[in-house]
Computed example of a mutant assay.
Amino acid sequence: MAWKPSEISDQSGRTFVITGANGGLGEQTTKVLASKGATVIMACRNAAKAQPIADAIDGDVRVAALDLADLASVREFAEQTGEFDVLINNAGLMNVPFSRTKDGFETQWGVNHLGHYALTGLLLDKIRDRVISLASIAHKQTPKLWVDDLNYENRRYQRNLAYAQSKLSNLMFARELQRRFTEAGSAKRSYGVHPGVSATDLFAKTETPIDRISKPFIRIVGQSPAHAAYSSLFAATSPDADPTVYWGPTRWFGSQGPVEPSPSSKLSQDQEMWRRLWEESERLTGVVYKF
């Protein structure tokens, strides 16, 4: 029988930090966890816009400012955050025009991967249980990881390829983090998951005519944001979920369906590339993990 949020046990006394929780999958994840008694911290770039959303959700829901495109903001958030149980690295951008973060990183990779790499490392000693990182079926859409030019200094920018690279990085990061937890003898866990395809605002920010037609089309081939949040909820709350499994829907090429062990690309399983990505992320952000 397919897993459903109704199987989540009482989460009273547990605290979850969710990045980008002011809409889409993050908002749906917040609603379910709060309904189960959890305290949820919505870590959002625009706290003022997030507050009305938090106010409309029953339960202990709080808002904190976090801009993943600014490492100073990431450090400030980490310094102000106390101990908690689960970090859900949910925020992301998709197929946006070329730009750079405040620290000079290509924006999709800088926000989707580097911001979350830095955040997780700075919070590591405050996380009691696990880290959930949202990847995507789009991780399969890049032929390689340009580990020597992740910031597009020496190649032409292709927005779809940049997104795929960032999602591949998310999955590689989740797997390398779990490998390092195991190596250190830590009981903490790291999960890579994907939500399938859902008509969230990710599909309306490309600044192209596609924005007008993407959501109606995605509603046909994908699943609702509430259903797409199942993967994050499963990995965040299931006591016995295997952290070495890539969890997500598998039907219609991974676009929809129940949460199951999901296939991933051969490239995403390359442990040498996990290590090289980690070392480059450490060099660029200056964040060194202490296990």
Score class of each variant (00 low, 15 high):
76 E>A: 15
76 E>N: 15
77 F>Q: 05
78 A>K: 03
79 E>V: 02
79 E>G: 15
79 E>T: 08
80 Q>F: 01
80 Q>R: 06
80 Q>K: 05
81 T>S: 13
81 T>I: 05
81 T>C: 12
82 G>T: 00
82 G>N: 00
83 E>P: 11
83 E>F: 02
83 E>Q: 13
83 E>C: 08
84 F>I: 07
84 F>S: 05
84 F>C: 05
85 D>H: 14
85 D>S: 07
85 D>N: 15
86 V>S: 10
86 V>C: 12
86 V>R: 14
87 L>H: 14
87 L>N: 10
88 I>T: 00
88 I>M: 11
89 N>M: 02
89 N>F: 13
89 N>E: 12
89 N>V: 07
89 N>G: 10
90 N>R: 07
90 N>S: 15
90 N>Q: 11
90 N>L: 14
91 A>K: 15
91 A>H: 15
92 G>D: 07
93 L>S: 04
93 L>V: 13
93 L>A: 10
93 L>W: 03
94 M>I: 10
94 M>D: 11
96 V>W: 13
96 V>K: 14
97 P>K: 09
97 P>A: 11
97 P>Q: 07
97 P>H: 13
98 F>W: 14
98 F>K: 03
99 S>K: 13
99 S>C: 01
100 R>K: 15
101 T>Q: 01
101 T>S: 00
102 K>H: 12
102 K>Y: 09
103 D>E: 02
103 D>R: 03
103 D>C: 08
104 G>I: 10
104 G>S: 04
104 G>V: 11
105 F>V: 10
107 T>V: 13
107 T>N: 13
107 T>Y: 06
108 Q>G: 12
108 Q>A: 10
109 W>D: 00
109 W>C: 00
109 W>M: 02
109 W>K: 02
110 G>M: 05
110 G>H: 06
110 G>A: 08
111 V>F: 10
111 V>I: 14
111 V>L: 13
111 V>T: 14
113 H>G: 01
113 H>D: 03
114 L>W: 15
114 L>N: 14
114 L>C: 12
114 L>V: 11
115 G>Q: 06
115 G>R: 01
116 H>T: 03
116 H>V: 02
116 H>D: 04
116 H>K: 00
117 Y>W: 08
117 Y>L: 01
117 Y>N: 00
117 Y>F: 15
117 Y>A: 02
117 Y>E: 00
118 A>I: 11
118 A>N: 07
118 A>T: 03
118 A>L: 03
119 L>Q: 04
119 L>V: 02
120 T>H: 01
120 T>F: 03
120 T>A: 12
120 T>R: 06
121 G>S: 09
122 L>P: 02
122 L>H: 04
123 L>C: 00
123 L>S: 06
123 L>H: 02
125 D>Y: 12
125 D>M: 06
126 K>T: 07
126 K>Q: 13
127 I>C: 05
127 I>K: 10
127 I>N: 09
127 I>H: 02
127 I>W: 00
127 I>Q: 10
127 I>M: 03
129 D>Q: 10
